[in-house]
């Protein structure tokens, strides 16, 4: 029973949503929209589970005085204060502290983490340079052509580079992306089918 009912739910929900794609009737559209809204609402309940997990892992770290435990205190302080500011009925997400935490903590941290990509992409390019295989060389040459074409400082280095870059984007790039996407489409459909038919059920747990 513990496994049969969930598998039946998966099958019914899966078949229903697959069939819904072919039914243009307004009733079918309503159901689709409801299901989408339901999923978002369930996600919020699940977020509570996430927060619980975060609290549990952090408090365990503190209790056991595990390595780097003081930082778990920082994490909990940020978490609890933001929950109090955001949900503590002191103006909620419009409160002064909530907005300032967002603007002066989250935004700079987000932007800086994102900007780290500039360094990582440089080190990744260096790594590609070091690779001696023929395929890595092809990758590198193609990358160089595109980098020269789209660099904002020099502009396209000659007409040949501009032509070559646009040819790479329009021919091999298009072909390869299409081949990958067709494969992905098939892989996704196969996985979805395995899930609906109950062939793939590892996510259902053990007992």
């Amino acid at each position: 029973m513990k496994k049969e009912i969930p598998l039946a739910i998966v099958f019914v929900a899966g078949v229903f949503m697959a069939v819904q794609f072919f039914v243009p009737h307004a009733g079918s559209e309503w159901i689709y929209e409801f299901v989408m809204e339901w999923t978002i609402i369930i996600g919020i309940f699940a977020l509570a589970l996430g927060i619980w997990s975060l609290l549990r892992v952090s408090t365990t770290k503190i209790k056991r005085k595990m390595e780097n435990w003081p930082y778990a205190v920082v994490l909990l302080a940020g978490l609890v204060s933001m929950i109090i500011f955001g949900m503590g009925f002191m103006g909620g997400v419009e409160s002064y502290m909530f907005r300032h935490f967002f603007n002066h903590v989250m935004i700079p941290l987000h932007a800086t983490m994102f900007s780290l990509l500039a360094f990582f992409i440089a080190s990744a390019a260096f790594r590609a340079f070091k690779a001696r295989s023929a395929l890595a060389t092809v990758l590198l040459i193609s990358a160089l052509v595109l980098m020269l074409r789209f660099n904002p400082y020099l502009g396209p280095v000659g007409d040949l580079d501009a032509d070559l870059a646009s040819w790479i984007l329009n021919v091999p790039n298009l072909a390869a992306k299409r081949a990958i996407i067709i494969g992905i489409g098939l892989g996704m459909v196969a996985t979805a089918l395995k899930v609906i038919l109950g062939i793939e059920r590892s996510y259902m747990g053990s007992d």
């Binding site: 790594r127 990958i180 098939l186």
Partner: peptide
């Protein structure tokens, strides 16, 4: 299966499953 991210994995990882290989 994110086509735009595969190149970064190809460059920085030892092994990369490209697109459908993930599903296989």
């Amino acid at each position: 299966d994110e086509v735009t991210q595969i190149p970064f994995f190809v460059v920085a990882c030892d092994y990369t499953l490209i697109g459908e290989e993930l599903y296989a």
